[in-house]
Simulated assay, not measured.
Amino acid sequence: MQSLIDHARTFHQRLSGDRRHLDPLPDGVAPQAMFITCSDAQVIPSLITGARPGELFELRTAGNVIPPYRLGRLTAEAATIEYAVSVLGVQDLVVCGHSRCGAVQGRVRSWTLRSAPTTRWWLLQTHRWRDVPPDDEEEAARSHLVAQLDKLRRYPRVARGLSSGRLRLHGWFYEVDTGVVLNYRRDARGFTPL
């Protein structure tokens, strides 16, 4: 923890010579995209995309889980998605899953989540895990990503934006060991290099 504290203390000094990281964006906050991904520390959206401060509106959850939309059910995820689409006017939504995802591994091998019942319950709402082979963790993570995309399409504001063409939805899969980012192609029902 001390190295993180030391870095935070001197952060302003490192940036003082590079004002582009501190200056506001020309038109205020206008993110290019919303980036929904896992809380896993191996996934760093700005590093993957090269985004500057203000260019990505991020939502991070354990296992990049998007809860099913239900009218009257308040969740931080639903509020954050609504804010990005309705207030900030983002035009691109990226849901990014990744290899070696501890949440997906924990769900596929449910015994690993015995000590984390809230996390286990959270992951149960993702999709039908029975259809995922437990011996193929990467396939489980990709299947999980596709399920999150399907749920996001059911959010009313997202559905309206997609049908009008004002909004685009992207499914990315980040391979932690190689740095390769794959893109989900719904028409082909598969992943191709980005």
Rank of each mutant, 00 (worst) to 15 (best):
Q42W: 03
G50W: 05
P68T: 13
P45D: 09
S46T: 09
T61W: 05
V85D: 04
R73Q: 14
T61C: 13
V87D: 02
L59T: 06
V87T: 09
R52W: 06
N64H: 15
Q42M: 10
R73Y: 06
R52H: 11
L47A: 15
T49H: 01
I44G: 02
P68E: 13
Y69D: 09
V65G: 06
P67I: 04
P68S: 14
Y83H: 09
E77D: 12
A76D: 01
G72D: 11
I44E: 05
G54M: 05
G72A: 12
N64V: 06
L88F: 11
T61I: 12
S46H: 06
N64L: 09
E77F: 03
L47E: 14
A79D: 00
T61Q: 12
V43C: 03
A79G: 07
L88M: 14
A78V: 04
L56Q: 06
G63H: 07
I66C: 14
V43M: 04
P53L: 12
V43G: 03
R70I: 12
Y69A: 11
I44D: 07
R60Q: 08
R60I: 00
L59N: 05
L59A: 09
G72H: 10
E77Y: 03
A79F: 00
T75F: 08
I81C: 05
T80C: 14
G72Y: 09
T49I: 01
E58C: 14
V87R: 05
T75I: 15
R73E: 15
R60H: 02
A51S: 06
G72C: 13
I48H: 01
G54H: 04
A51R: 00
A78F: 00
S86V: 15
P53M: 13
N64D: 12
I44Q: 11
I66M: 13
V43P: 00
A62T: 05
A51M: 00
I81H: 01
E55G: 08
P53T: 08
P45W: 01
Y69H: 15
G54A: 08
L47K: 15
L74F: 03
A78Y: 01
R52C: 06
P53Q: 10
F57G: 07
R70K: 14
T80S: 15
A78H: 09
E82C: 06
T80A: 15
A41K: 02
Y69C: 10
E82F: 01
E58W: 00
T61K: 10
G63C: 10
L88Q: 13
A84D: 09
V87L: 05
I66K: 03
L56E: 06
I81S: 04
E55K: 08
R73W: 07
Q42F: 07
E58G: 05
E58I: 03
R52F: 07
A76V: 02
R73M: 12
Q42C: 08
A76L: 02
S86D: 15
E77L: 08
A41P: 00
I66G: 03
G50T: 04
I44A: 11
A51P: 00
G72K: 13
